[in-house]
């Protein structure tokens, strides 16, 4: 199963926590939390910033265009 955090190979995961984010609805700071994804019939998870109260998520562009895009490509070629 591919891991979005690249099994430690990829550093873009760190970008996920570089910026602070505050949940707009609950006005509390978002914290890393295990989050599940699925794509083309495969399931996987990684830690991303979530609101501890309402569960709102934040994924920065660096992660989307970095490791997430790589995983998407790997799964498309699988």
């Amino acid at each position: 199963m591919p891991r979005i955090d690249g099994g430690g190979r990829d550093q873009t995961i760190k970008a996920a926590f570089e910026k602070k984010a505050v949940c707009r609805r609950c006005n509390v700071e978002m914290i890393p939390k295990k989050t599940f994804f699925d794509y083309l019939g495969h399931n996987f998870h990684t830690e991303i910033l979530c609101c501890p109260e309402c569960g709102e998520v934040y994924i920065p562009e660096k992660l989307v265009k970095g490791r997430m895009a790589e995983v998407e490509q790997e799964l498309e070629d699988k």
């Binding site: 910026k19 984010a21 505050v22 707009r24 609805r25 978002m30 910033l49 709102e56 934040y58 994924i59």
Partner: peptide, 17 residues
């Protein structure tokens, strides 16, 4: 509408999906 998304405390920008 849903008042959702996150707020960047530095810039005040809202990021939502």
């Amino acid at each position: 509408k849903e008042n959702c998304g996150s707020l960047d405390p530095e810039t005040g920008h809202v990021t939502g999906h």
